[in-house]
Design a protein around this nucleic acid. Structure first.
Length: 506
DNA sequence: TTGGTAGAGA
């Protein structure tokens, strides 16, 4: 309300709809969609009329807010004022529905447009591409009476998201004059397909690179687990005086975290400070993760406490980092602080917390947190949360409770949950629970993986029951896997004779 | 003064 008063004071002196339009647009550009909508309401209250310049940013604001209610109300306003017939307003309506995921509504707007220019066609094309309807996008692309460079670029980015290298390349080769967007999208196609050699080839060929080109490559290396290459490219970037942004920093820190290189991580931290990139919550989170993974929990805490702008990612990272290193109580204390700061936990927070409890043996705290997810926060536990709980109960030797949880969970238990409880059965010498679990798995009509057959075989082998172990081993689709993956069964003359956990000699 | 295309954290 304070904003409205201020706004009306500032703007009522100049009751010019142009100024109001400009103001609305600026709010949207700043990411303040709510204020933009409030400005529009204020404008109407003052008796000013909206026009074809007012609606496009407002429709964008509705999309930014992900508010279908606001979207429908604004669509109604365009009809009421007659501006729904304006080409630019129609295109903005199409884009708003597309952003909200209402592709059918976007298509309706498009179909009812009496005049369609290339921007309208591209908007519909993008609606299909961003909703992964590449078949519809391809049909539309080929039926377009007008195409420009954006049309080709939109198609390439669609294929990039689906990893369709050949289709993307065919579009790319048809472009007479490519721009940086075309090249960057084509590089992304290859990084998404896991072909960093081809991505790097294009990167070298590209005459004019921008920050997105560099970031696409750095991210590509990280996603494809080529961490040293990611760091090297970052150094090349610096040597070439290309200024990294917060996304470059986030990814190179992530590479460093995977490499476990604290020395390099420290240097990157200093660099991020010098470039003032460390204030971004993305970078803060990446720093916390890097320090935690490199074993420096104290530095992770220092980054966390010094950060002026902490979001849920930062909180989740520090909770998970503490939990991973066995500081269960500290993780729980930070969770309390997080709640005091009125930050709502999400499903990732609980994965960190439950893992923290499992590592520190805090069984009852873990159970309470697990129960609070749905009751207090309306978060339905996912299979990962059940996995953490099975791990927590198994580590605490509460095998029957772990079994009951698996029995009650609304998911098909996977290999990792099976592995957690079965190995606990081996450690705590409880074959009964192991067999009960096997029966439960067997009762569910599903396809068993070789990994699961091997776990069953290992369970019996651990208890010296070679006949059963052999029987389960024989069910494996590829029993040769036992000889190549470090399986813990030793086979002599077709019979399993010995169980050696963790050894790979056969 | 207005609508469309590339990367974007666990």
């Amino acid at each position: 309300m304070a904003f409205l008063a201020c706004n009306s004071n500032c703007l009522s002196k100049v009751p010019d709809s142009r100024r109001w339009n400009k103001n609305i647009k600026e709010q949207v550009l700043k990411g303040n969609a709510k204020k933009a909508i409030l400005t529009y309401i204020n404008m109407k209250e003052l008796g000013l009329h909206a026009d074809n310049y007012t609606f496009p940013p407002l429709l964008q604001a509705a999309a930014d807010l992900s508010s279908s209610f606001t979207a429908l109300a604004l669509h109604g306003q365009t009809i009421k004022t007659g501006f729904c017939c304006h080409l630019f307003v129609q295109t903005a309506l199409l884009n708003m529905y597309s952003s909200l995921g209402f592709i059918g509504d976007a298509h309706n707007v498009f179909e009812n447009m009496p005049l369609k220019d290339v921007v309208a066609w591209n908007s519909m094309l993008d609606a299909y591409v961003s909703s992964e309807q590449m078949d519809n996008a391809t049909l539309l692309f080929h039926s377009m009476p007008l195409k420009d460079l954006s049309s080709f670029n939109i198609m390439i980015s669609g294929y990039a998201n689906m990893g369709r290298t050949v289709s993307a390349r065919s579009i790319f080769d048809q472009i007479p004059t490519k721009d940086t967007v075309s090249w960057n999208s084509m590089i992304l196609v290859h990084t998404n397909a896991g072909d960093m050699v081809e991505a790097h080839k294009l990167f070298k060929e590209l005459p004019v690179k921008n920050i997105i080109t560099w970031n696409t490559m750095v991210r590509g290396y990280v996603r494809n687990e080529l961490y040293a290459e990611a760091v090297d490219l970052f150094e090349e970037m610096r040597a070439g005086n290309v200024k990294p942004d917060f996304l470059t920093m986030t990814d190179v820190l992530s590479a460093c975290a995977h490499l476990g290189s604290l020395e390099r991580g420290n240097k990157l931290h200093i660099y991020a400070k010098d470039c003032r990139l460390d204030s971004s919550p993305h970078v803060t989170t990446a720093l916390i993760v890097m320090y935690a993974k490199c074993g420096s929990t104290l530095k992770a805490l220092e980054v966390f406490y010094k950060s002026q702008c902490k979001d849920i990612y930062c909180w989740n990272a520090i909770i998970a980092g503490l939990g991973f290193h066995g500081y269960g109580y500290s993780a729980l204390k930070l969770y309390d602080k997080m709640r005091e700061n009125c930050i709502m936990p999400d499903d990732i927070t609980f994965i960190g917390l439950l893992n923290a409890c499992a590592h520190a043996g805090l069984v009852e705290d873990g159970c309470q947190l697990f129960n609070s997810m749905e009751k207090e926060f309306g978060i339905s536990p996912k299979i990962e949360h059940y996995g953490c709980m099975v791990d927590l109960l198994s580590r605490a030797k509460l095998l029957d409770r772990a079994f009951q949880l698996i029995q009650a969970m609304p998911f098909e238990p996977g290999e990792s949950i099976l592995g957690a409880l079965l190995s606990a059965c081996v450690i705590h010498r409880d074959l009964d629970t192991g067999e009960k679990l096997m029966k439960l798995y067997f009762a569910r009509t599903r396809q068993f993986s070789d990994g699961e057959f091997m776990m069953f075989a290992n369970l019996y082998a651990a208890f010296g029951k070679w006949e059963e172990a052999n029987r389960w081993r024989d069910k494996m689709n590829n029993s040769g896997i036992a000889k190549t993956t470090g399986c813990s069964i030793i086979e002599v003359n077709g019979r399993i004779h010995k169980f050696l956990a963790g050894e790979s000699r056969i």
